[in-house]
Design a protein around this nucleic acid. Structure first.
Length: 358
DNA sequence: AATTCGGGGAG
DNA sequence: CTCCCAGAATT
């Protein structure tokens, strides 16, 4: 079938790739000074998140919380504010749980062991491999989506890369070819995937250091790889949201501690598309009297992985009913909104309106 | 093994 | 629109 075996191809990768990496590695903030804490924070931020999106968050986060101890002691509100807009908010909660574990169980020193790293909350196979190899030069693989794509193409594997068995097999194969510079090698595989061996049928094979090794390129079938099972269809939910303004403050509500956008703040809302009359009735149950007319604001759509919100929005100047004891809503000023409250990107459409009002 | 966690950029 | 991204935790 093939001229060379899988092993023969794999063994040629490290030398070629490291040579390429030395010339083509991007300059990234967390690469300049790869201390364990910096690598840890960067790897958590980079989970399912692009490099360009992470850059500004990384700088700000390290400035605010320069050490593991600072992170362990930070209030959750500060963590969420630093993570605001980055998504997957449990990452930062787990990061702090990990920091607290490091303080309590490792004397404040991040452990230089793959197994110990993997026991920390939020650190799985990939992240333990990345921190271990990059920060501690431990010879362990770090197989992410980039690596799975690169290896699938080079070896022309048509396996479903979402299958855990497929990932374990590739991890084993990478382990066998790890060179001395393990951290650089792991990064070079990811770097190739991120900058050359691009997904969605857009690989730049003419720039690729593995071109002459790559079976998929030899066959001319790079674009059909990697194979992945199809994602599930999204549900669509209609919601009515409210811009309630009272004395220069806007109403917010804290989301439940579990589930989507857990523990973040949001504009108060209600399932369904409420008309003017229904909306007014709902506001009464929140202890809010309306001073003027309810006005329609721009509708918005927000897409999550498994659900899609179609939001229609009412704006009204409100007055608080002094007799009503409603704890659901809090009223925040512009300053508090900017400094203290983490509002998910789902509401960024309304952000401009809010800024104009307050 | 399947689902659920965000958000943005590219085709 | 669809797909993907330096994945992990939960069910």
């Amino acid at each position: 079938m093939w001229k060379e075996t899988d092993e023969e191809i794999l063994q040629q990768i490290p030398e070629k790739l490291l040579k390429w990496y030395d010339q083509n590695a991007r300059i990234l903030p967390w690469r300049e000074n790869p201390q364990p804490y910096r690598v840890w924070v960067s790897e958590i931020m980079l989970q399912q998140t692009r490099v360009e999106a992470v850059k500004p968050y990384f700088e700000r986060f390290l400035k605010a919380l320069p050490t593991v101890e600072d992170l362990a002691q930070a209030p959750e509100e500060q963590l969420l504010k630093l993570w605001e807009g980055l998504g997957y908010y449990n990452r930062v909660r787990n990061l702090q749980r990990g920091a607290r574990a490091v303080m309590a169980e490792h004397g404040g020193v991040i452990p230089a062991s793959f197994e110990a790293l993997k026991k920390l909350p939020g650190i799985g196979d990939y992240t333990a491999g990345a921190i271990g190899s990059i920060a501690f030069q431990i010879p362990v693989p770090a197989v992410d989506g980039n690596v799975l794509r690169v290896i699938s193409r080079v070896l022309y594997r048509r396996d479903n890369i979402l299958d855990a068995k497929v990932k374990r097999r590739i991890e084993g194969e990478i382990k066998e070819i790890l060179p001395e510079r393990t951290g650089d090698f792991n990064q070079s595989l990811m770097e190739l995937g991120a900058t050359v061996c691009l997904p969605n049928g857009a690989p730049k094979c003419n720039e690729c250091p593995l071109q002459e090794l790559c079976r998929a390129h030899l066959v001319g079938d790079e674009e059909s790889l990697p194979v992945k099972t199809k994602a599930k269809k999204r549900k669509i939910e209609q919601r009515t949201v409210f811009l309630l303004v009272c004395d220069g403050k806007i109403a917010l509500r804290k989301r439940p501690e579990k589930g989507l956008l857990a523990g973040l703040w949001e504009l108060p809302s209600q399932e369904g598309m409420l008309g003017c009359a229904e909306a007014g009735k709902l506001l009464q149950t929140w202890g809010v009297r309306t001073l003027g007319e309810l006005q329609k604001q721009t509708d918005a759509k927000h897409i999550f992985s498994h659900v899609e919100w179609h939001m229609t929005c009412w704006y009204v100047e409100a007055a608080l009913d002094p007799d009503a004891d409603v704890k659901e809503l809090i009223w925040v000023s512009r300053k508090e909104l900017d400094q203290d409250v983490a509002l998910p990107a789902a509401f960024k459409t309304y952000r401009k309106v809010i800024e104009k009002i307050l």
